[in-house]
Design a protein around this nucleic acid. Sequence first.
DNA 1: TGCGCGACATACTGTCGGTATGTCGCTGTA
DNA 2: TACAGCGACATACCGACAGTATGTCGCGCA
Lengths: 200, 200
Amino acid sequence: MATARPRRIEYSETTRQALVDSAVDLFTEHGYSQTSLDEIAKRARVTKGALYHHFGGKQALFEAAFSAVEAGVVARLSEVVSDSGDPWEATRSGLRAFLEVCLEPSYQRIVVQDGPAVMGWDRWREAEEAYTFGVLRAVVANLVSSGEIGDDLPVDALARIMFGALSAGATAIAGSASPIQERADIAVCVERVLNGLRVS
Amino acid sequence: MATARPRRIEYSETTRQALVDSAVDLFTEHGYSQTSLDEIAKRARVTKGALYHHFGGKQALFEAAFSAVEAGVVARLSEVVSDSGDPWEATRSGLRAFLEVCLEPSYQRIVVQDGPAVMGWDRWREAEEAYTFGVLRAVVANLVSSGEIGDDLPVDALARIMFGALSAGATAIAGSASPIQERADIAVCVERVLNGLRVS
DNA sequence: TGCGCGACATACTGTCGGTATGTCGCTGTA
DNA sequence: TACAGCGACATACCGACAGTATGTCGCGCA
């Protein structure tokens, strides 16, 4: 039968979704601290009461927006990575895709810029574990276990500094006056670092 | 004679200094958004009126605290770097010193964590240019121009991703359950990356 | 058909960043 | 040395906004 799913619940879910969408847009545009809950509720065409019914507070709503952005990113990244054959090629295409992702305003602002400050480093890292960083670490782990870059490197530490390097690189691109040139420069450096790690 | 420097000015400067010190302490301990101006003023034993007399607002005070922390860091870093002889050794000792710095709570919280979110990326990068990142770029520039790692690498881009990698590494150390082990792991990876870049 | 509960709306409170204004004492000047 | 002026604060207040308490309406079930 069909009515196993009451209308109320569907209404509730669309409202929640509207709030998250609104939050993603406004947090991306004006940043966390410059966005009021009334604005978010207004854009979702509900009131603050609805917002507080679905979320515990401003931080909780931010985390929902964070998760929504990350979920989309991870879906694309893991597709790209799993489509590639050997670990080396998966890494290269994965890095390209990650740089691409970092250029998107929502990822840049919500995940990279405001994320750590709003959620705190501990929670941010914990969350990242299940999203983008998790994917990157899996790629690095493959690379190490396949022996491409030497099998004596600590996976977690290497993934950390790679993640930091790529985030910083992508941020530099996003904030550059000439993104095309900056991006080419970053790509050259990343390639060089990777090739330098490869066992000869 | 000696009275070229009125008492009022000295009083003013000590008040300002007390406010900056108080801000550094409280921002480090509770973060930017969880610290009220009344608290900062109270710890400095003045009122909010004095605070607004010396600084344009909360952000301006944060930037003063930011600059105070960075100034101390740069003083130590540049000393270490200039004491080392050849570019290669200067880089290695500089990296060690930077990792050390990143472990300090004030640097971690005010500069790395809250800095970008509070000041915005543009202003943060602009400020960093005159502080830690500036030092790191000078070191990298030396390395490149000396031909140690090949002279065809874009200095700015390389410095960016190095900065990101080291910040992330230090953050990982600071937040790790076993900092000693984590630190050793990070150091291994950084060494490997550097050696990989070296021309053979 | 009535009743309970979930999904909101409305009205209010407290906190805090920022402002407007007042006061006091040092300092340069006649 | 008397006074005028300004710099260094203190005090009182305003507005915005996160969070809360309470009211209301309609769906779904007995």
